[in-house]
Amino acid sequence: MNNFNPLIHSFPYLLRGAGMTVLMAATAAIPATVLGVVLALLQVFGNRILRASVIAYLLLVRGIPLLVLLTFAYYLLPLTGIDLPPFWGVVLVIACYYAAFMSEVFRAGILSLPQAQWDAARGLGMTRPLMLKIVILPQALRLAAPPYVSLCVSLVKATSLVSIVGLWELTMASREVVERTLAPFQVFIGAGAIYFCICYALALYGRHLERRVLHGH
């Protein structure tokens, strides 16, 4: 067990890295979700120009690896004169990237609601914004919850890429520890276990939501 001493000694450091990972993921997930809902609504209800723009955006973003986008933004942002702290730049890129996937999940949720729900809401004299707010979105988001949680799991793991552009989080912390201790296997087993625990907890929550969706409310 002596072999695991480097891991045990550096574990608190790794946990602080994990804290940063969770903070970054959560900070990115919130605007990603909001933007995802907006893009979904634009795609379902927007006029032709809006719909085409959204579709072009989705195609573009989903066709490029996140790592390429992060690196690109890393070089591009300073040139545009936008003075964004690296943390926020990275959060912005991850949010824009995941919004594209989330919007598809939300759109599927909206479209899978039966026409009858719209008819009932319209028949009661609801305007479209009101229908969306109290009838359509509450149901669509519930339907979308399980795949949405999968995307959040993927988002958490994707934050490991930001160490490439020099941001400190769990993966970066692990690499630092490896440089000091020269114990890559032990340290990365520890880092992997931490990632797994975060993602497994999220996935369990997703399963719980799925059961709630399947068995009514």
Binding site: A116, Q117, D119, A120, A121, R122, G123, L124, G125, M126, T127, R128, V135, P138, Q139, R142, G216, H217
Partner: peptide, 24 residues
């Protein structure tokens, strides 16, 4: 206008074959 149409619809009650209650 859509707003006026919505207001007009509120004066008409409709019941459907498939109930269409809001499940949530």
């Amino acid at each position: 206008s859509e707003r006026d149409i919505a207001a007009a619809r509120a004066t008409i009650g409709m019941v459907f074959q498939s109930f269409n209650l809001f499940p949530h």
